[in-house]
Computed example of a mutant assay.
Amino acid sequence: MTSKPPRDEDRRIQGMVSVALAADRVTKPIFGRHGFAGGALVVDWPAIVGSAVAAHTLPVRIKFPPKERTGGILEIKVASSAFATELQHLEPLIIERVNGYFGWQAVTRLRLRHGPLPERAKAKAAPRPPPANAALSERLKDVTDPALKEALERLGRHILAKG
């Protein structure tokens, strides 16, 4: 009796590997149901259409004709009716960019769906530096160059915070 070689899904991953490999195994079935081969289109959406368009839109699915992988309809969720009108004018450009991303004529039409978009994570503001220590200020009082004094204060605050 000969044993069959293990399929790719059954093989264990050993050693250090990219998180993308494991994430792809989890997300591929979910995105596949929506016409996305992987989550790459959703993740790369701002790079494909630009940040201004991506801020108001989100790709939902690509619906292909039966047994085809070309000539699909890309369904896009749009935040507002006003932006949907603008998106209709940008349709040829968006189709061109999406097809350029895939490398073949994957999409021929857009279908717009109105609705709220999921909230995006907001960037956190940089923490304010702690105030200068009185002893540190006393030591740096004779430094006349403002740029050097600022750099030394930052260094001093960093050292004081560590220890």
Rank of each mutant, 00 (worst) to 15 (best):
M1D: 10
M1L: 12
T2V: 00
T2L: 13
R7F: 12
E9A: 12
E9Y: 14
M16L: 09
V19K: 09
L21D: 12
L21A: 11
V26R: 01
F31P: 01
G32I: 00
R33C: 02
H34V: 00
H34P: 00
F36L: 10
G38D: 15
G39S: 13
G39D: 05
L41N: 01
V42A: 11
V42P: 01
V43D: 08
V43Q: 06
V43G: 09
V43N: 12
V49C: 05
V53T: 11
V53W: 01
A55P: 01
V60T: 06
R61L: 01
I62H: 01
E68R: 15
G72Q: 07
G72M: 02
I73Y: 05
I73M: 06
K77S: 09
A82D: 11
F83Q: 04
A84Y: 02
T85Y: 10
E86R: 12
L87H: 01
H89M: 11
P92S: 08
R97H: 08
N99Q: 12
F102K: 03
F102R: 08
Q105D: 14
R111L: 03
L112N: 06
R113M: 08
H114G: 10
G115T: 01
L117M: 05
E119W: 00
A121I: 09
A121R: 13
A123W: 04
R128V: 04
P130T: 15
N133E: 13
N133C: 15
A135K: 14
L136S: 14
L136K: 07
L140D: 06
L140A: 05
L155M: 13
G156H: 07
R157M: 03
